[in-house]
Write a protein that binds this DNA or RNA. Sequence first.
DNA 1: GCATTACTTTACTATCAGGTTAAATAACCA
DNA 2: TGGTTATTTAACCTGATAGTAAAGTAATGC
Lengths: 116, 116
Amino acid sequence: MSSDQLSNTFSALADPTRRAILAKLTTGEKTVSDLAEPFDMTMPAITKHLKVLEKAHLIERSKQAQYRPCKLHPEPLKDIDEWMEQYRQFFEASFDRLDDYLQQLQSKSEDINGNE
Amino acid sequence: MSSDQLSNTFSALADPTRRAILAKLTTGEKTVSDLAEPFDMTMPAITKHLKVLEKAHLIERSKQAQYRPCKLHPEPLKDIDEWMEQYRQFFEASFDRLDDYLQQLQSKSEDINGNE
DNA sequence: GCATTACTTTACTATCAGGTTAAATAACCA
DNA sequence: TGGTTATTTAACCTGATAGTAAAGTAATGC
């Protein structure tokens, strides 16, 4: 179940360790040890997290000597951003405020001009 | 583990049934039966999904006679949108194209001027 | 060739997630 | 009061997740 791409992406992001890994990758390619360094966790745990991120296509891996560097592959985040679009009108404060503002203007001009 | 708010929100969204429930709530308050209707799933399963959404503060519930209507509470989506901000530069096509364009300009000027 | 470094795989454990059926609760309505 | 409708709770099953320790692989470099 929940094997669709969007579910996979959300699921991969639902873990603070994995989000921290992605954040670290915004500064460029990193080795597994680089990524593991801040966490109080064994290497196999990190390997697993990387597998989850890879399966969700949020990272790409390569080989350089004995290293297997990771780099950010942000496209799935774009899909989330697009999914979010349908909700943006419900949570965007600036939009709400603009809307309120426009409605205020509207009612003021009605007061002044006596429009219907 | 992963008890932080953002993880909770991502986790709640990592299920197509729950995303469909949220989508349906964009058109207004709905009863549990309304929400359950499109799914090939028993009521207890829906109750559980609603509990997950409620725990993630993505919905709010009330009481009206024997109904317990649900309404969208989109604020946590705003948090995701804000989290996304740090990645937007990596996936926004317009930015990428601008970046490509600047790099092209750069390499052209290198060709012409013989810069290192 | 052999130790070291950098990982991954395997096997195992514990907990959580998503579903079920059956029973419980709670408000309406005749 | 007692039946019907709406929803939840309880108990259970199954499979996935997140971690571990220990062994395996693979490239580097003396």
